[in-house]
């Protein structure tokens, strides 16, 4: 089962993404689909996939999230889902790290697509870009090195004080819906720093992609747009 949250959040947290953004999100998802297939992974897609509820949790609405998470779990169980492949860090974090606390008996294993790609077969289509890490992937889910492994052939430009695991900044996305001015300020400052390394930035998170793109300072690409198998 492929979690399509990416498509749902690719337009930032807007309810109706622009047609162009929507098409781009679907393109990214198709790329992930084929990259997984070419890596020999077998999986199926749900026709109608539920949102993970990550936003409810991140905003702190605990009771609403707990109720929602139990619904999602029931939905998965009714369809005999045993394992979920995630394509974005927020879904991954909430399913793997948070659901077990709120959903009794949660027994679905959660795998990131980043871990399933065959790094030996990967071709990176661009070079000289900077990596903007998703906070969750880099500092909560242990994927800082994995993202670099997948992108190594493109020779990303690194600076220990801009793209270091402990020093890199956030895109501001998580506070977009509460304090939009703060989100914009954080995104602007992050984009400015990244731009000192390269005007092209690669990210593995749809929220980072949307938030940093909006600054107009850097061109942001999703990992799935720049790798090929």
């Amino acid at each position: 089962m492929l979690a399509a949250l990416g498509a749902k959040t690719a337009g930032g947290l807007m309810l109706r993404p622009e047609r162009e953004e929507l098409e781009r999100a679907y393109r990214i998802l198709r790329n992930i689909y084929y990259a997984l297939r070419h890596s020999g992974v077998e999986f199926r897609l749900l026709d109608d996939e539920p949102y993970s509820g990550a936003l409810l949790y991140e905003l702190g609405f605990e009771d609403d999230f707990a109720e929602y998470a139990r619904e999602v779990y029931r939905y998965f169980k009714e369809r005999d889902v045993k394992e979920v492949i995630t394509v974005d860090p927020h879904t991954h974090y909430v399913l793997e790290r948070v659901y077990p606390t709120y959903v009794d008996g949660f027994d679905i294993s959660v795998v990131s697509y980043l871990d399933l790609l065959d790094a030996g077969k990967i071709r990176v289509k661009i070079s000289g870009f900077a990596i903007h890490d998703s906070c969750l992937y880099a500092r909560f889910l242990g994927r800082y090195e994995r993202v670099r492994q997948l992108l190594a052939a493109g020779g990303p430009v690194e600076n220990p004080y801009i793209t270091g695991k402990e020093t890199a900044g956030c895109c501001g996305g998580p506070v977009e819906s509460i304090v939009p001015n703060l989100a914009a300020k954080i995104a602007f400052s992050r984009a400015q720093k990244l731009a000192t390394l390269s005007r092209t930035v690669v990210s593995a998170c749809p929220i980072c992609l949307a938030n940093l793109s909006r600054t107009g300072i850097v061109e942001v690409k999703d990992v799935a747009e720049v790798v090929e198998l």
């Binding site: 906070c135 969750l136 880099a138 500092r139 402990e166 900044g169 956030c170 506070v175 509460i178 989100a183």
Partner: peptide
């Protein structure tokens, strides 16, 4: 509410 949960 302003925290972005960056984790640094």
């Amino acid at each position: 509410l302003k925290c972005v949960h960056a984790g640094n």
